[in-house]
């Protein structure tokens, strides 16, 4: 068992670098369209790729590096995914002009369920 341990550690170091690099690539790919033109919603789609998924990959890479701190890293991962996704939804639905349907009833799931 003991000769396997350094090998596992070296492997986890390499995998963590790989995850961090992949997250960085997603960051660049998803943030670059902000500089270009194009539809606002399309840019939001790509920003969700970079900020949610890329950052989650980076957090996984950090988790391989410091496994002793897993509770806080798990909390950060959960918070990152939930908050960024909900913020993308709020930005998309708020940036649109209001829907021109005759019954103006706002049944959208507003923040009433954020009380958890």
């Amino acid at each position: 068992m003991s000769p396997l341990l350094p090998a596992i550690q070296a492997l986890s170091g390499h995998v963590s670098l790989l995850l961090l690099g992949a997250g960085l690539l997603l960051w660049f790919w998803g943030t670059w369209p902000l500089l270009e033109g194009g539809s606002y919603l399309g840019r939001l789609h790509k920003l969700s790729v970079s900020d949610t998924l890329g950052s989650a990959l980076m957090l996984l890479g950090l988790l391989l590096r410091i496994p002793g701190q897993w509770p806080l890293l798990a909390l950060a991962l959960l918070g990152l995914i939930v908050w960024n996704t909900i913020f993308g939804y709020v930005l998309a639905s708020c940036s649109l002009p209001p829907p021109h349907e005759p019954p103006r009833e706002r049944t959208a799931p507003h923040r009433s369920d954020r009380s958890r």
């Binding site: 918070g79 990152l80 939930v82 960024n84 709020v90 923040r111």
Partner: peptide, 23 residues
């Protein structure tokens, strides 16, 4: 790292309120 983790889990809730207000 603790500061980073807390700011990630608190999220940008102020921006969320600001977006609703702007709308």
């Amino acid at each position: 790292g603790l500061v980073g983790a807390i700011s990630l889990s608190a999220g940008n809730s102020g921006m969320l309120l600001l977006a609703n207000l702007l709308r």
